[in-house]
Amino acid sequence: MEILDKLVNVALIAATLRTTAPILLVALGGSFTTKAGIFNIGLEGQMLAGAFFAVLGSIWTGSAFAGVACGVAAALVFALVFAVLVVSFRANEVVVGLALNILAGGMTISLMKAIFGTRGSIVGQGIVGLPKVQLPGARAVLGSWAPLISGFTPIVYVAFIAVPLLVLFYNRTRLGLYIRVVGEKPEAAEALGISITRVRYIASLLCGLLAGLAGAHLSLGYITMFTENMSSGRGFMAVAILIFSNGDPLKVLAGCLLFGFADASSLRLQTFGYPSYLVLTVPYVVALTALFALSYRARPKIIAETLASMQRLLSTDRNTGPDGKHPL
């Protein structure tokens, strides 16, 4: 019991929300492209670019919010390049996404070297982090539970508020509906005079917006620094969640919370003295297990068909076996 208390408490839940925020934002961003029928593997790169330029902006201007704006702008540029190549020039989305991811990784490293003359990470140098929002009255109402809703950076609130907003967006607004239609049945959109190109551009840019915010949260949120490959696979994790949630905001939230919780508990597990390398795999193991469990239920058609045809084959054997005429 004591161990459980130590493991699950208010601080852990608060940490879960904190670690969920960046992956939730980037996954919600990806939800736009997923719904619009674009397989966007470039989330990782957009996020990384966002993180780097957010730090750069905050150093240049001395303002955290201007830094966030810079990060978002950088991610938008990546998203625009992605859209031009994929939507206008019909390039393969996986190839373009991967190329942009590699570009983001290499570019941030070489710019870091060129501007700061360092390798590895940018720390200090006048980076201004995001302020924490203390909700007035939270402590009075919730007492020791206050950290659950108060004391996060603004981007965390944005991430969680974005979930119901996206639900509303997809169900009750034209643009949301068009994004869904373009992804699900492009020929229907075309026949109705909805421009597939335009809708996909908009979806890509909305994706860049949220991916940039997610990146800025990484570098200006709870730690104010930039390190090489700072996004460390969160963008890919988001892609995985998107595949299994089909971009539905609530399912995306569930997937991200699971990952965030595993991430937060792994930090906690380190205090128990387990080898840190092993502990750091926990979130990924949890995520993989969950995705496997989910995907087995809603397994893609091709797997279902293979299973069915194997069953058919087996039942053929059973049916014809007993009369002894069957050579198999």
Binding site: N171, R174, R180, V181, K185, A188, A191, L192
Partner: peptide
């Protein structure tokens, strides 16, 4: 050219939705 996940009415009005306060009036 219908969208399977949408309702009949949504499909009928797709591209010319009836809106109120900027939201689709289902």
């Amino acid at each position: 050219k219908l969208v399977p996940s949408l309702s009949v009415a949504d499909n009928v009005f797709l591209g010319m939705e009836i809106c109120r306060h900027g939201l689709i009036d289902h």
